[in-house]
Design a protein around this nucleic acid. Structure first.
Length: 392
DNA sequence: AATCTTAGCAACCGCCTATAA
DNA sequence: TTTATAGGCGGTTGCTAAGAT
């Protein structure tokens, strides 16, 4: 949009409709700086994601709300795993792409640690070529009267495999909740569905999900290498070495462990000297690790938990459990959520719901539930639309 | 060593739907 | 009811680094 258009829209908004989210004149574009990232993360840590319109206004960021949302969802939010797609993930993406087409957001809902943008990029840069190569190879072998097995797999079979994968993921979580009596954190970490955690078992709390703090820390690490003038040093309690960088109203302290030299913690110091620790243990959700683990297994499941964990597949029923789950889900979604079509508030609402559960879930569990709720929610709405169209 | 080409990916753009005024 | 905005999504672009010449 050019400047003149922005002015015109602003004029119209005085007459009718909602006020504009932000004046786009003077908005910054291009790559985000570590300073901007930290401002955004610290704001979301305090206020939670959502209401993106308020973010530039309240933080002073010269970015439009859309840019803030994208930066958070694609790069900064907790739970994002970057790079190094596993073979399992590759297969999932290929299966899902065959099933769903280029619906990257839908595909990403099955891979909670990956963003739609990341999957889309990976597909465009790696998988498309890989498949083209395979296809070429297959065509060659077919010409020789030796067709490959993968070609003969129908879409229905892909779907069945996919459903099995999802079922396994859910079972892994259920097992983690029911089997582990001594340590509520470690069981899920060992799951094959959370490979990142297995890489760093030194961290007691679940590091399954790369936290935004880690992302920022990585950025800052690179940044401080590039600009050696800025950082000043200070020592923080409990750390052998730390680096603090000041800017605007807050400063950032990076603490590194003596053993591996990696940044393991990030401290935010606001201008009024309040200190908030942005670590893998804190974030959108509160961690209940200090609570007795017995609560984890002895409390009955709530309606919401049943909805998140149970479906026909998990209950051992035969048949098309995805379809069953969707039917039930559509009703439950309407029952549980007052405004299921209000996408704007969905994330914060789901986070609030999951946060309100009595069971002492740790943060990894909560993030999994959050992702699961999103997935079911989308399915429910999709199903509702489908039913609506059928009715018409 | 310099230049050109390619790959990877973060971020933008444009469109759509739901929502608010 | 109308209209602009917010949020979400998929396609595309453009920058950067790595590799090739």
């Amino acid at each position: 949009m050019v400047a003149g258009e922005a002015v015109e829209l602003f004029y119209f908004s005085d007459i009718m409709g909602r006020p504009p989210c932000c004046d786009k004149i003077g908005m910054k574009k291009g790559p985000w700086t570590p300073e901007e990232d930290i401002i955004l993360v610290s704001y979301i840590q305090e206020h939670g994601p959502g209401n993106w319109r308020a973010v530039p206004a309240n933080t002073g960021l010269l970015r439009c709300s859309k840019s803030c949302r994208l930066r958070w969802t694609n790069y900064l939010r907790p739970g994002i795993k970057r790079g190094n797609f596993t073979e399992h993930e590759e297969k999932m993406i290929i299966h899902l792409q065959a099933l769903l087409g280029n619906r990257w957001a839908a595909i990403a809902s099955y891979l909670p640690q990956r963003t739609d943008n990341d999957i889309k990029n990976y597909w465009n840069t790696h998988l498309k070529k890989k498949l083209a190569k395979l296809k070429g190879h297959d065509e060659k072998t077919t010409e020789n009267g030796n067709s490959s097995d993968s070609q003969s797999i129908t879409k229905g079979q892909w779907e069945k495999r996919l459903q099995t994968d999802i079922h396994m993921a859910k079972q892994a979580l259920c097992e983690a909740l029911s089997l582990d009596k001594s340590d509520t954190n470690s069981s899920i970490i060992d799951s094959k569905f959370f490979p990142m955690a297995a890489q760093n078992k030194q961290i007691q709390t679940s590091s399954t999900y790369a936290s935004s703090a880690e992302n920022i820390a990585r950025l800052l690490e690179n940044w401080s290498k590039k600009s050696p003038k800025k950082p000043s040093h200070q020592h923080l309690p409990g750390s052998s070495e730390s680096t603090t960088q000041s800017y605007n109203n807050c400063s950032v302290g990076m603490t590194s462990s003596p053993s591996d030299g990696q940044i393991s913690n990030l401290t935010f110091l606001s201008s009024n000297s309040e200190v908030s620790q942005l670590t893998p243990e804190t974030g959108i959700f509160q961690d209940h690790e200090s609570k007795p683990s017995l609560e984890m297994t002895q409390m009955p499941f709530s309606l919401l938990e049943n909805w998140l964990f149970d479906d026909a597949g998990a209950q051992g029923q035969d048949g098309d459990f995805m379809e069953m789950a969707l039917e039930e889900t559509a009703d439950l979604a309407h029952h549980l959520f007052r405004s299921p079509y209000n996408r704007a508030h969905r994330s914060s609402y789901l986070a609030e719901l999951i946060g309100s559960l009595d069971r002492p879930y740790n943060r990894a569990h909560q993030l999994f539930l959050f992702s699961r709720a999103h997935q079911l929610f989308r399915s429910a709405i999709g199903r509702a639309h489908q039913l609506f169209r059928t009715a018409i």
